[in-house]
Design a protein around this nucleic acid. Sequence first.
RNA 1: GGCCCCAUGGUCAAGCGGUUAAGACAUCGCCCUUUCACGGCGGUAACAGGAGUUCGAUUCUCCUUGGGGUCA
Length: 367
Amino acid sequence: MSKRVVVGMSGGVDSSLAALLLKEQGYEVIGLFMRNWNEEDENGCCSADADYGDVRSVCQKLDIPYYTIDLSKEYYDRVFKHFVSEYSRGRTPNPDVLCNKEIKFDSFVKHALALGADHVATGHYCNVSHTDGRHYLMKAKDEDKDQTYFLNQVSERQLEKVLFPIGNMLKSEVRELAEKYGLSTADKKDSTGVCFIGERNFRKFLSEYIPMKRGEIRTLDGKTVGFHDGVYYYTLGQRKGLGVGGVPFNKDGGRWFVAKKDVENNILYVSQGDQSMLYARELVTDGFNFVNGTPEKKEFRCAARIRHRQKEQNATCRVLENGSVKIEFDDMQRAIVEGQYATLYVGDVCIGGGVIDAVPDRDIRCV
RNA sequence: GGCCCCAUGGUCAAGCGGUUAAGACAUCGCCCUUUCACGGCGGUAACAGGAGUUCGAUUCUCCUUGGGGUCA
């Protein structure tokens, strides 16, 4: 009796090919499409419908059963609420990391196992190494597409029954194979934007959940150079959308960046040209998820990322008494942002991550 | 009120009788990207209005209008 595997299918090439590969490997494959967001996008279309159409097309081609599951309530309660609440506090959360922890690798996996699955698979670019009864989250072969950053909050237990069929393939190989097997999704554009919600005019989207609140845009020495619709819509280090241009407060001119957010007074501080105040060497997380449990050594060298696709940065980590982690980078980092995740690696193993909660050495000189 | 300056795209700012009227920032589009951002590449966009001088005016003169600055 062949093993049964449920594949989380999004309607993209990656999960399509994942399903195909598993079938080729002799698994009994079931496609499961998750519906987590039902609202229409700003163009009035609900991309979930189109995506499900692609899932259907691929599953029919592969001759495998497919189902859909609606987790929009769970998504709203366990991911989106927190997302809105964090933005309201002036932080910049990463909903996709939370989505993986709470939805894809929790609710979804539970439903999949309830279908009698022995394994659950997704089209993520990453790997799991099952060695000596342990399960390690490993980086993808395609360094350029590696998605371990988004998985930093999963636990070893969650990885136990998970398969990542395309983790050892390059994106180009995935597309080639999909093409070769005639999958309709072979040349479908990669999806971007918040997972399940998609590419949006972000400020406009947020304003549907967090009311606009006009305030001043000031330079660090206190001159008003413009107005904004709410500091929480902005991210430290951001340039676009400030609407401040030409004013020569800096003799060298240059682009304007968000330098500091005063959430309490709703004042956005900006800097022209000079970005030195955005650089810092240390960060402290709010708790920390070690995929394989807290390490023995409380201080160790590792590589870290503060953003998806950032080149790994060498750093020294220290596990604090309260379970948080303090990371000290060898090189200064630009725009370490509260609410984003710091993800750690030792070699090709992603050992975990935590929400950035404080950046003690950031220069916030300001009148 | 008298006198004196200034007036170019959204903003800042080149130009100094003949230019496809620079550039920067903003903005927009594309690329990058399963977060938010950063980044790369492109595009749109201007001589305040009216009279002169001149073969020819953004460039010179005058007036109007609109900004400053001064002096009673």
